[in-house]
Design a protein around this nucleic acid. Structure first.
Lengths: 194, 194
DNA sequence: AATAAAACTTAATCAAGATTAAGTTTTATC
DNA sequence: GATAAAACTTAATCTTGATTAAGTTTTATT
């Protein structure tokens, strides 16, 4: 239960003094979550940013027919939240739960806002984080608009090789946007061509 | 050719002193663009952020079959760029052109980076801008994974009523992710039910 | 080890939306 | 105002991927 991974992730973009690091550490909360344990459910108002230090979380929505659509997997070193709910402080539409036994670090929105003023470098870090994340979602959207199911699957394998090995196939299906049945059929056709 | 709209957009989130405003204005470049004029094409390295003060721009990709997929429309008051290219300074994959006769304000990436340090409030503004934008793309992605073509069309009408009136149908089709033929068919079926 | 619960597979049928190919209407351009 | 170009429509046919419904294998739980 240490903040090393988080501090390293931050250090990749900005460098904090000892004192600044302490100010950050002072507001962190550490938590263990069991596999399948929920952190948020639809309707909850998100009050905190979540950093995954071990294991893997995911965020997803459930549509009117009861089907899950996965927005994000967050393995160790990644951030995850219901961004819209955290910004607007309105009830969210996403579920967040643990794919594996995990350890997470929480920062309250209110603490984060104080930190932005006390340590402007942290505001820079979160600007960079949001911009990178934005670029990633933009390209995933383009991919969803322009690629076939098999191409999206292949992209997933290339981009997240470590996830592919650990995730049940049905979760990959819910991420790339096909039914588990279709993904199974597609993979067992010995894909000769993309 | 004045920065009023841009200053107002910023003032919605942070308040700048006269001096800070001047520092910002000093690095702005104003430009008129004709309808259909390109600002970026695939392969260009993006060096600047674009703010639309009049008219409307769009960003899109062209897939291997030559079909356009529209990532964003940017009417007056909105920002637009090839985010990934601006961040990585690698050749981009998007095209940006003018949907209508437009006026834009440009800020060089290098100037913006200096401004973040000189005027930390601007870094805050762009953090907020990126976070809001991120939340919007996350929800568009969920919509694309979970809604039918007609539901996505109806969402578009509700969210962008002013765009619907001015855009050719085929551009709306390229945004929601259907062929122009299918959108036409869908709309002429007198949609009784969604 | 036994049992239940997930996860995966297979196959038949179905539907949303793509493709192809005209033809028609609207909008720009000279 | 004529003409070309772009946008829109319609319809037939085709394809990707969804749905339904078993059955099988793997993984958890007691």
């Amino acid at each position: 239960m240490q903040p090393d991974l988080l501090l390293n992730a931050i250090a990749k973009h900005i460098s904090l003094t000892q004192d600044e690091q302490q100010q950050l550490i002072a507001v962190l909360a550490f938590k263990k979550v069991k596999k399948k344990q929920f952190l948020y459910q639809e309707g909850d108002i998100s009050k905190q940013a979540i950093f995954v230090s071990k294991g893997c979380l995911r965020s997803y929505s459930i549509d009117k027919n009861g089907f899950e659509h996965i927005l994000q997997f967050a393995p160790a070193g990644w951030w995850i939240s219901d961004m819209r709910s955290i910004i607007t402080q309105q009830p969210g539409t996403l579920y967040i739960d643990a794919v594996d036994e995990s350890e997470i670090i929480l920062i309250q929105k209110t603490d984060l806002e104080k930190l932005y003023t006390a340590v402007p470098k942290l505001e820079r870090f979160f600007r960079i984080l949001a911009e990178n994340s934005l670029a990633t979602y933009q390209h995933r959207l383009i991919d969803n608009l322009s690629l076939s199911a098999l191409e999206r699957y292949n992209n997933f394998c290339v981009r997240y090789p470590s996830l592919i090995e650990n995730l049940p196939q049905k979760q990959v299906a819910a991420y790339i946007g096909v039914t588990p049945e279709f993904l199974s059929k597609m993979l067992n056709k010995i894909p000769a061509k993309k």
